[in-house]
């Protein structure tokens, strides 16, 4: 009994610690500026308008850029990863093992290690300071993972289902489109969410590639604001709150697939 109580207590502590920054974020976001120094936790006056203030400032711009960046990355990623995963899962593609190993190898790299070279590559292609350049790099860095995940899902679909469709007169393409994809839908959705969140959260490449405020996503926009001379912490926290809303929503949406997603590339 005591052990049980202790375990539940430990769980509560764990949840509190993991959630603490977000509580601080919400409470700070709702404070008037003068209370930041005097009221460490609850505000005395709740300023709900703080939540709207960033929308009157640059938040719409940063938000739009993050949205474009993440959507663009997700679409391009699917466009490249779906055929590749199909080739690895369901076609007699030569060198499958080699391709898979090459894909894992790319996971060793973090863009920050080669950021200087990436920057030069992008600038020689005139892709610096544009969302297109970021989309390409983000796609490349999430592609291996997406292919891996999709391959696992596509391979799990029994051969008979696809064969039955083809016997019914479907071409390979339409069998893929009408039968295989719907069956593997959870996998596709999980992949979409993972890639989207990854692109939404990316920081170092965006920080390096972008200079125009016009192009900055939330991560860089808020970082710039936080490192400016005297940030207004309450408004910064309000903006941060908005910045994490979409990813949290998506996260809650796929939470039950999270484990298989995160470990699909790893455990196999």
């Amino acid at each position: 009994m005591l052990a049980l109580v202790l375990r539940r207590l430990a769980l509560l502590v764990l949840i509190a610690v993991m959630g603490a920054p977000f509580i601080v974020m919400c409470l700070t976001a709702l404070k008037p500026s003068i209370e930041i120094a005097t009221h460490p936790l609850l505000p005395a006056t709740w300023v709900w308008d703080n939540l709207l203030a960033p929308w009157r400032d640059k938040l719409p711009l940063f938000f739009r850029n993050s949205l474009l960046l993440a959507t663009g990355t997700t679409l391009l990623n699917l466009l490249l990863a779906l055929p590749a995963a199909y080739a690895l899962a369901r076609l007699p593609t030569p060198g499958k093992k080699l391709w898979r190993q090459a894909l894992i190898a790319t996971q060793m790299f973090s863009p920050v290690v080669v950021v200087v070279s990436l920057y030069r590559l992008a600038s020689s292609a005139r892709l610096v300071d544009s969302l297109a350049g970021l989309i390409l790099v983000n796609t490349a860095y999430s592609l291996a993972f997406a292919i891996w995940l999709l391959t696992a899902y596509l391979a799990a679909v029994p051969d008979e289902i696809e064969e039955a469709a083809m016997v019914d007169g479907c071409s390979r393409l339409s069998a893929f489109w009408r039968v295989l994809l719907p069956v593997a839908r959870p996998g596709v959705v999980t992949t979409i969410v993972f890639v989207f969140i990854g692109a939404w959260n990316e920081f170092v490449i965006a920080l390096t590639f972008l200079s125009s405020e016009q192009n900055k996503p939330l991560t860089v926009g808020l970082h710039d604001y936080a490192s400016a001379y005297s940030p207004q912490w309450n408004l910064l926290m309000a903006a941060a709150l908005w910045a994490i809303v979409p990813v949290i929503a998506l996260f809650a949406f796929i939470e039950k697939h999270l484990a298989e997603g995160l470990t699909a590339g790893a455990v196999k």
């Binding site: 739009r64 292609a125 969302l131 297109a132």
Partner: peptide, 13 residues
């Protein structure tokens, strides 16, 4: 590749 990405990000650019 840029063309592809540009097309994808079309509305934005």
């Amino acid at each position: 590749v840029l063309l592809a990405a540009g097309w994808l990000a079309g509305c934005g650019s």
